[in-house]
Design a protein around this nucleic acid. Sequence first.
DNA 1: ATTAATTTTTAGACTTGCCTAAATATATTT
DNA 2: AAATATATTTAGGCAAGTCTAAAAATTAAT
Lengths: 218, 218
Amino acid sequence: MFTLSEENYLKAIYHLELVANSGISTNAIANQLETKASSVSDMIKKLSDKEVVIYKKYKGVTLTNLGKKVAANIVRKHRLWEVFLVEKLNFSWDEVHDVAEQLEHIKSPKLINQLDALLGFPTQDPHGDPIPDKEGNINVIEKSLLSTLNKNESAVCVGVNDSSSDFLQFLDKKGITLGKKIVVLEKEEFDNSLLIKIGTEQLSISNKIANNLYVQRK
Amino acid sequence: MFTLSEENYLKAIYHLELVANSGISTNAIANQLETKASSVSDMIKKLSDKEVVIYKKYKGVTLTNLGKKVAANIVRKHRLWEVFLVEKLNFSWDEVHDVAEQLEHIKSPKLINQLDALLGFPTQDPHGDPIPDKEGNINVIEKSLLSTLNKNESAVCVGVNDSSSDFLQFLDKKGITLGKKIVVLEKEEFDNSLLIKIGTEQLSISNKIANNLYVQRK
DNA sequence: ATTAATTTTTAGACTTGCCTAAATATATTT
DNA sequence: AAATATATTTAGGCAAGTCTAAAAATTAAT
């Protein structure tokens, strides 16, 4: 069994490994968890004793298969709860993260299995992120950043890279929701902004926005 | 804001106050929480500093109005989650306690309000216990222990005094559920056991059982 | 290939919440 | 009312998880 703190470390390492190619540094974890490298060093020893990470001093850390499974299960719970909050309790997608952050630590296999069933076995959370199955496997869908599209290409919104309230509320305000079709009408060389058609609307989208919105080419 | 441990102490004191008439002793709390009196002494000082209990050394402890409100809110959350587990996730009434014990500590007013609405604003949990409202008020219903009924009296099951799995599963096995009508056919002087009619069945009920089942006289 | 800069680890301390053992206060007997 | 028993508090210590500051290792730069 893992403490709340251990679970948070495992989750952080799990997320960092998805984008990293080598071992995860103490500093990277400290940064992710808003804590200090010295605290991370301490905790990594405990996790290493529990055989969920491989740790060589000064060489960064890697999840073991067990560690990956434990971490994926926490992510699974987090994302299922997010779906629950949106689908059943009328939360909007910018309100779910903090609550799911608490709910993900509830320990009850039956609870999470029944929740999964209640929600109809969803495969994605409200932000388009994949929900790991019971074994921790995720179904990776092909997606690209909106910023990589060329003029006249069309695509469908499938996810966000930034889940901050500010960004999500901005998308709401502009009527950009998952599943919506986008066509790139113009691509401005100067500032890499895009003119897009979304529904019947035309919108100008800054590069920063386009770098945080995932689409699937159509 | 209160820590998990502080919340558990407040809840324990709240439950003890419901059946006590004077201040709650250190030992009573220690007993309820399966901890030591010395630990309770420590914690009570913290709770006193936070103005949720009144504490005079050696004189027991009492919840302040703030303390009552905080405690009632935890109980509210616990019982709403129990309803959720039974109504939405197909838990049986003997499986809900431990999970609700975790869920009651989740901090999100919106979550609990929306959950309340999803469940249709229930006033009782699966064991017949009242769910405090947002202000901490509870709707006390008139109820008696089955053991207090006399021969030929009839009543309806409305709650349990013991929520242990063993007892609840026993009731399931005998087909005794909340809402069922009971008639006392015989009362045995020797061992205080009862012969009751429940539905079309006749059942012999020991005094211990009758002392743990609440009914409403009809 | 040394030196300098950065990263990581260690050492020591702090807080929370718990414990045991001892001291003190209250309650109960006689 | 003194003596005994019980309840409560205090004192000191321990584990988890964090921190700061210093030491050690690694990486980068000259």
